[in-house]
């Protein structure tokens, strides 16, 4: 049974002529890692906000169809109820903080659901470990940390609640390259050791492709493609036409295929791309 099911879902923000999303049908299974990509203003953030109930609960607009999360229709349940199952990490880490220390930030959600002190301590330690935040950061003010550390604290504060579904909306978009790498490493760690459903809106496809079970392309408010990574990236031209820029090694190998120098699958990692290029070059040498 899917943990998220969207049926003919559509959303139009109040005062807007255009539908932000329309005719969206998709389901997400327990434990899946789903990457959502698309150009700016295509409806990606609206899609993920609909998955944790922020839409329609916190925004005015017109809704079509339904979104059911862990058996709860988002039109009938407040965000605070849905949040017990769905954690949401925003792109700007600073804007999510309401506490003056890392510890208070991480325990905020745990106190809200009424956990006892021992369990709160155990979860704080576990979530900070998973997010690669040293325990001696507990007393630091979150706003004094680096961008990557801030976002990892934001992720830890969600992980601590142990939701079955974690949504990350462009978690690296406001970070410097070092911060982006740190956050991607945490995503890898989550993939390895935490069996949650992970849904991430992310532009760094080269890092996400090896982790994801599925890629979803959102364009102009519609889901245009929903496929496993290798199949998703198989038609590079289609992605480029729709404002998505795949990693350069994929584009390079795709060009080799067009030239008839390579006929294998599209590589998902740099190592696979090097191997594909070697294969193409050895074929060229043999001619």
């Amino acid at each position: 049974m899917p943990v998220i099911r969207m049926e003919n879902f559509g959303w139009r923000y109040e005062g807007q002529e255009r539908w932000a999303l329309r005719g969206v049908n998709l389901s997400v299974e327990q434990g899946e890692f789903v990457a959502i990509v698309g150009p700016n203003d295509s409806g990606k953030s609206t899609l993920v906000m609909a998955m944790n109930g922020l839409i329609p609960n916190n925004y005015y607009g017109v809704i079509e169809g339904s979104v059911v999360v862990k058996g709860m229709d988002t039109r009938e349940h407040p965000v605070a109820d849905i949040a017990r199952h769905v954690g949401f990490v925003f792109s700007d880490p600073e804007s999510q903080f309401l506490s003056m220390t890392v510890e208070e930030e991480v325990v905020f959600g745990l106190e809200n659901i009424g956990l006892d002190v021992d369990e709160i301590r155990e979860r704080v330690e576990w979530s900070l470990g998973l997010a690669h935040i040293p325990m001696d950061y507990l007393e630091k003010p979150p706003y004094e940390l680096s961008g990557g550390q801030k976002q990892r604290v934001a992720i830890a504060s969600i992980l601590a609640m142990r939701p079955e579904i974690i949504i990350l909306d462009e978690p690296t978009s406001m970070l410097d390259p070092v911060g982006k790498t740190e956050v991607i490493e945490v995503l890898r760690e989550m993939r390895r050791s935490y069996n949650a459903t992970i849904i991430v809106v992310e532009h760094r496809m080269e890092d996400i492709a090896p982790l994801a079970d599925r890629f979803i392309l959102v364009h102009d408010g519609r889901v245009l493609r929903d496929a496993p990574p290798r199949e998703f990236f198989d038609d590079i031209d289609f992605l480029l036409e729709h404002g998505v820029f795949p990693p350069e090694p994929m584009v390079f190998v795709s060009e080799l295929r067009k030239m008839g120098l390579y006929d294998g699958p599209i590589p998902l990692t740099l190592e696979e791309a090097i191997s594909a290029s070697r294969e193409a070059l050895s074929g060229l040498r043999g001619r």
């Binding site: 605070a80 949040a83 769905v86 309401l98 905020f108 809200n112 969600i158």
Partner: peptide
Amino acid sequence: AMESRCFGS
């Protein structure tokens, strides 16, 4: 962000 961490539960 607060609601997403069960504030109001």
